[in-house]
Design a protein around this nucleic acid. Sequence first.
RNA 1: GUGGGUGUAGCUCAGUUGGUUAGAGCGCCAGGUUGUGGCCCUGGAGGCCGUGGGUUCGAGUCCCAUCACUCACCCCA
Length: 435
Amino acid sequence: MSIKLVNLKGTKDYLPEEQYLRNKIRFTLEEVFKSYGFRPLETPILCFMDVLSSKYAGGAEILKEIYQLSDQGQRELALRYDLTVPFARVIGMNPQLRLPFKRYEIGKVFRDGPVKTGRMREFMQCDVDIAGASSMMAEAEFILMVLDIFDKFGLDVYVSYNNRKLLSGILQCLQIPDPKINNVILSLDKLEKIGPEGVRQEIEALQLQDDMIERIFNLYDNKQIDLDYFSDNFPNSLVKEGINELKELNEYLLEVDALDKTRFNPFLARGLDIYTGTVFEVFLTDGAISSSIAAGGRYDKIIGGFLDDGKEYPAVGISFGLDVIYNALSMKKEFKNNRSEIDFYIIPLGTNKESLRLASLLRKNGWSVDIDMTGRRLKKSLDYANKEKIPYVIIYGEDELKSGIIKFKDMEKGEEKSLSLQDIPQELKRFLPKN
RNA sequence: GUGGGUGUAGCUCAGUUGGUUAGAGCGCCAGGUUGUGGCCCUGGAGGCCGUGGGUUCGAGUCCCAUCACUCACCCCA
């Protein structure tokens, strides 16, 4: 009986065509991360369960989604479900690290949760965080970095942002009972997604007093909404703090000409317990993908709470969804029908040894070279090169061996040129300059 | 977790009111005489018709169950 070849639900193989673009995305991300002074960090996927599950503000929900396992020593282990806990652990284990500590990590994380499109159980997370910075300069740099990155990808995006202090403070002012504040925030966060009517239904289901609901929606209906409006109408220390932070951030954004790419959205909330201040989400301007393609915010309490060492670790972070970016890019036509990464395909016709030597020579000169090793007919090999979208083919047969002149074929144009074997690297550079 | 949809070749799908050897296109491999691709022609490999029961002389087709995938809500980055 044969084994049934299947992947685990929520996992998948990324075949070369797809993986090529994924690698490119990853490379671009890393390049920009580095240019903003973030340094690479890699942490183990395999963790101790008690470290992963201790005192983390993620709450009990995420704990259910942790993959658990044990080793031969009966230790209770788990697969990491995000990159923030490992980040905090590294800070705790390395007190000599100078703050602010800026790192990025790109790696796989695992969640045993529901699977749907764009949501796997094993997936890539690209996190960039800075610990030890309380200034809004951190947020400004992150937003700037986001814009740089999507500019490189050629994707038109805007950054929606808010401050959690503002939203919570307003709701406090409205006398909404504490236990329900979170629910209201969650509903308001869906304004863009399900519209005001949907949100109204959800909030009405919370059985708040009617005048509270009306006041909430008055806010939404008021087009003139700005920071001064909030500070005038909601005298509350939290609101004030939030507004000051937003104002500081706005000044920075103005200075770096990023205001036209950012939108203040007073109802943006994001995941509940983690964020303490600024929150932001990145969306495609054309709305081709409705969910956010990157998101982050400030979480000043998490690392300190996790380490419990009496110190404070104000932190800001952002997470990029590799798969979402992939989806966005693959919708653009210039990313379809990508030519092969292979520059030349050598077809030996009774010249295996010499062809190997030629391949080696070309590779030393910086090209990617593939070579036929099946000995199949010439037309089959040409067809293969054609289907693989390899741009150039070199035909190296016995005639060429004798004359020292090989045939060099442009697969797209169909043109064929004769080139002297002696100075082939120089000749080929004229057709396909390497950078 | 709730509700809907779909399961037939590697992929996209046909498959009449139940009827005998299960189909197409694409892809893959090979051939259409010696070393020239993209088109065309021919052939080949590849299916327990998701799985298990039931109805029937007979089930890919009808019924039940189950599993998987998928979409929408719920929840969650």
